[in-house]
Design a protein around this nucleic acid. Structure first.
Ligand code: ZN
Ligand code: ZN
Ligand code: ZN
Ligand code: ZN
Lengths: 167, 167
DNA sequence: CCTTGACCTGTTATGATATTACATAGATAT
DNA sequence: ATATCTATGTAATATCATAACAGGTCAAGG
């Protein structure tokens, strides 16, 4: 007789070793595809901002992004970063993580969308978890009160698999 | 022949006319009960802060609270408000609404807890919706990735029943 | 009683996050 | 080429939040 062990957890790229160079490259490529359809431009600042966010599966504060941009020869005043970030968020290429007052690259540009964020308090990794079930539960809840949801943010703080094991 | 219309939505107090004087009074009374058990004090500033939050089913920014406190003869520097608010949040008598950088009185002190917030973008009402189903969906989602949730915030922006009807 | 120590309040100063307003430059369309 | 729209840069300011310290209140233990 053999055990029916539960299926091993499927790690999110944010929490597992992976070919991140490729991961980031794909993010950028997908962004270009998506924007090509719309009549908007992925200008140098915007592109660079996205690259910066894609470097890591973390969320960066606007000022952190700004420093990087300034170092790359772009403007060094807050609106430079905030505008580029707003553009990315508006086009679904990045998300704002309210709990952290920070921004993170979207890892599912175009698809799915309406993620839940899982934030590791130890290593600061931010994963975008599929949230269809969560959204649907939330919609049902709101519906019972006659409330119409337009936008929502679902964010959880805790420990990623690696940091939990290390503890 | 009669219609089987779906059951009417059960309004949250935040969205419906109700005896708010009583609603606020109960909030304060419940706070006293809860704190009585613990060895902490509901000092004048703290009590007044809670009263201010209870006045309305809205979320108030810390500086808004501070103004009110100062007008009542308390200190007029940010820590005065932030400390009182932190105390209330720590003891489950108020919640922080991250989307608004603001605080709202808890309407279910002691009970349940781990609400989802429904924020009306029109009238600014904030309702605390029961979030058990949502949390459970979120836990399941996190579990699949091996992530352990410690705290989470679930907030939705949209239109309350009244404002939706008005539109 | 009166000292001690915990806790609370007040104040100063500063840090962190975000937006408004305006000027200039670049792209697009006629 | 010119008008128009969009994007960028900068200055100034608004908004949100915390650190550090000084003084006051109060209850417990001597
Ligand atoms: Zn990656
Ligand atoms: Zn981690
Ligand atoms: Zn009420
Ligand atoms: Zn409303």
């Amino acid at each position: 007789m053999h055990d029916h062990t539960p299926p091993p957890p499927k790690d999110d790229p944010a929490f597992a070793k992976h070919d991140h160079h490729r991961c980031a490259g794909e993010g950028l490529a997908r962004a270009e595809e998506i924007l090509a359809g719309r009549k908007v431009r992925l200008t140098p600042v915007r592109r660079r901002t996205l690259e910066i966010l894609l470097e890591d599966h973390r969320a960066l504060g606007a000022y952190e992004v700004l420093e990087r941009l300034a170092a790359d020869g772009f403007g060094n005043q807050p609106p430079v970063a905030y505008r580029a970030l707003e553009f990315l968020v508006d086009h679904g290429l990045a998300h704002r993580v309210r709990r952290l007052n920070a921004f993170t690259a979207c890892r599912h540009s175009g698809q799915d969308h309406a993620p839940a964020f899982l934030i590791c308090r130890q290593c600061n990794a931010v994963a975008e978890a599929p949230a269809d079930a969560v959204r649907s539960a939330l919609d049902t809840t709101a519906d019972k009160l006659g409330f119409v949801i337009e936008r929502s943010n679902i964010e959880a703080l805790g420990l990623c698999p690696a940091c939990r094991d290390a503890a």
